[in-house]
Design a protein around this nucleic acid. Structure first.
Lengths: 147, 147
DNA sequence: CACCTAAGTTGTATTTCAAGACCCAGTCTA
DNA sequence: TAGACTGGGTCTTGAAATACAACTTAGGTG
């Protein structure tokens, strides 16, 4: 039987951000930590793997490597527009982890610009209602022959 | 210098859903595909790895293995409450992929129960405003000594 | 009887990852 | 001016994870 794999933007996204350490490195950049050594220490990734991940993220246009010092040349990693758009992903992952995995108090707490301690909802852009189990219906899907 | 790793629910969540193939298997369950062979075909994961991932997800309380036939005994994977709560994660990942990775038409299209073709926003539960770059401020974070 | 399905498991080859040492260019400190 | 330090990596080596195909189990079908 011919195997066909579902073509899907989730798989496309995970090809960029789905490898081990990628999202944790991006988390650090969202935290304002932009330098290799600090990202390495705060995530616990090994240096060579982190270097590889950062290269991939730069290549995919999620991060940019910006020189912040001439002598000696030093670089930091800053978010592109595509990178900033990952905020929703990091937030939903974090809230799911807080609710279903982390035990005890949430290890990180955020404030939204409205002043409230952050909690989010993912809503339909059209009607504004929160997404619920069973509220989505698949209209169509594409398939790929594997290589 | 003592290395300290940031304690964080993103890392906790990724320990459960962050390995290769886990989110794609869950995507299939959200698609209504609940059986081993079909999940394997639709994701392209190898059978042994998929079996391992499904065990992990069942162990973490994200999926449940339910017998749907006595003779011969056959099982399918269904979402628990924690699993259903991953809808927001899968949706934000998919939309990010559509916007920044997938080229051409989105490979999957969904309809929300309100009738509209699905597009979502992640909003502050308190004020209802959409999350924006720079609208979050870190209040506090915990750290861990690595093992 | 031969073949099929579902849901895995097993064996082996390949790839990736982890940990730590090492490197390089420039800077600071005594 | 030697020695240590900093930032941002690369290299080596061994351990672990992954891929692929074949096999198993338990029963069903023609």
């Amino acid at each position: 039987m011919a195997t066909r794999v579902r073509e899907c933007s989730i798989a496309d996204a995970l090809a960029v951000i789905g490898e081990r350490w990628s999202l944790l490195a991006l988390r650090e950049v969202f935290f304002g930590v932009r330098r290799f050594d600090q990202i390495q220490r705060n995530t616990g990734a090994s240096r060579d793997i982190l270097a590889t991940r950062l290269r991939t993220l730069v290549g995919a246009g999620v991060l940019e490597k910006v020189q912040y010092e001439q002598h000696p040349p030093r670089y930091e990693y800053v978010l592109t527009d595509a990178g900033r758009d990952l905020q929703a992903v990091l937030t939903t992952v974090r809230e799911w982890g807080e609710r279903h995995v982390t035990e005890g108090e949430p290890p990180t707490v955020w404030r939204h610009s409205c002043g409230a301690e952050l909690a989010t909802r993912t809503v339909c852009a059209h009607c504004g209602e929160e997404l619920r189990p069973g509220s989505l219906e698949l209209i169509r899907t594409r398939w790929l022959e594997p290589a």
